[in-house]
């Protein structure tokens, strides 16, 4: 049975127009269009492109919620199994649109694949969510890109187990997938150690992580005029944990007003953190979030003001991806409220 596929392309490859048509809303046409013709031939009897979505790049990037819904509705309407997008080469917004289209379909459980130049901004944004085949930077590479995309797509659709990104020819997604190996971990560890001792090649099961760096901000000139905020990953919350921040792998953060609060006392505040012995934080939450001392310093004029709200989450098995997103949100709220500095406490 041939898999049913929807192809997503932009206004240019859909033959509607160039930059001036980049704000057209998505439309769907039965069958193939543009590069879909070549793709359909290459897919042969393994998969059939049943319809093509054509959408303006600017429209897609600017109306993600609507376009995402349109894509999923179309997949359902055509009873499709998968979505293939692009290739977008080095066209930035087309890359972002293709990546987004695949992400939206993948989130709804569909198999997806796109192609773009490795430096297209769409790669960094969406590679975790979809397979992306590397292409040349311009459409001149169409003839080279389509066979690779078609072959890999057919393989993924068939459910065949994929090798490494390098072996299969897609851009490494950086996504960890659990699997059951032949041997238990201890056996694998000792086997790896033997290879390492003998100087034979071995493959680590996990390459050590790399973290972002940011340029330090200049110092705050006059602290006595500054508003300072408290943020913590130590899980300090009002008693009862009103926003249900989880003990581990938190899915949210909370912001709590502390106007008039001069001391975090036991029984009114607690920790929600499951990763450390809670005894001491529950006895005196100031041990994690020093509201008492900052109130003193505020009264003495050493700092201008303690910001009226503290932000908190549980940093315990919490994904860096989530932490980054919340950090950006908290940072924006603080900046919009003219906070000059943040003291971040961690447990």
């Amino acid at each position: 049975m041939a898999y049913r596929v929807i192809h997503y392309i932009n206004q240019f490859f859909g033959g509607i127009g160039g930059e001036e048509k980049a704000d057209i809303a998505p439309e769907v046409r039965d069958g193939v269009a543009g590069p879909g013709m070549g793709l359909a031939k290459l897919l042969g009897d393994k998969a059939e492109i049943v319809a093509t979505i054509i959408c303006g790049d600017n429209y897609c990037v600017g109306n993600q919620e609507e376009v995402g819904k349109f894509i999923v509705d179309t997949l359902k309407k055509y009873n499709a199994d998968a979505l293939i997008a692009g290739p977008a080469f080095n066209a930035g917004r087309y890359g972002m649109a293709s990546g987004f289209a695949c992400s939206a379909a993948a989130a709804a459980g569909y198999t997806t694949l796109t192609g773009m130049y490795p430096e297209n901004p769409g790669v960094e944004l969406y590679k975790a969510n979809t397979y992306i085949v590397p292409t040349t930077d311009s459409a001149a590479g169409m003839g080279k890109a389509l066979p690779v995309m078609a072959a890999l797509f057919a393989k993924i659709l068939s459910g065949e187990k994929l090798g490494t990104a390098e072996a299969e020819g897609y851009i490494e997604r950086g996504v960890r997938i659990n699997t059951f190996y032949e041997e238990v971990g201890a056996e694998r560890a000792v086997a790896m150690l033997l290879k390492k001792i003998k100087g034979e090649p071995f493959t680590t099961e996990y390459k050590m992580p790399v973290f972002d760096r940011v340029t330090p901000r200049p110092g705050v000139k006059d602290l006595s005029k500054a508003t300072i905020a408290l943020v913590t990953s130590g899980g300090i919350v009002p008693m009862g944990n009103p926003d249900h921040i989880a003990a581990s792998s938190a899915r949210n953060y909370g912001g709590y007003e502390i106007d008039g609060v001069t001391d975090l006392v036991s029984g009114k505040y607690q920790t929600a953190h499951g990763g450390y012995d809670q005894t001491y934080a529950n006895q005196d939450p100031d041990r994690v979030l020093p509201v008492d001392v900052l109130r003193d310093l505020e009264k003495e004029g050493k700092i201008g003001k303690l910001y009226h709200t503290f932000y908190t989450t549980v940093g315990n098995g919490t994904a860096v991806g989530n932490a980054k997103k919340w950090g950006e949100e908290i940072g924006k709220q603080l900046k919009d409220n003219n906070v000059q500095a943040v003291i971040l406490t961690s447990t």
């Binding site: 950086g174 699997t179 032949e182 041997e183 971990g185 201890a186 099961e205």
Partner: peptide, 14 residues
């Protein structure tokens, strides 16, 4: 996800 390698579970990167 026992870290004494008690089980066969592991992970790989795609």
């Amino acid at each position: 996800t026992n870290e004494l390698g008690f089980s066969k579970i592991g992970a790989y990167t795609i």
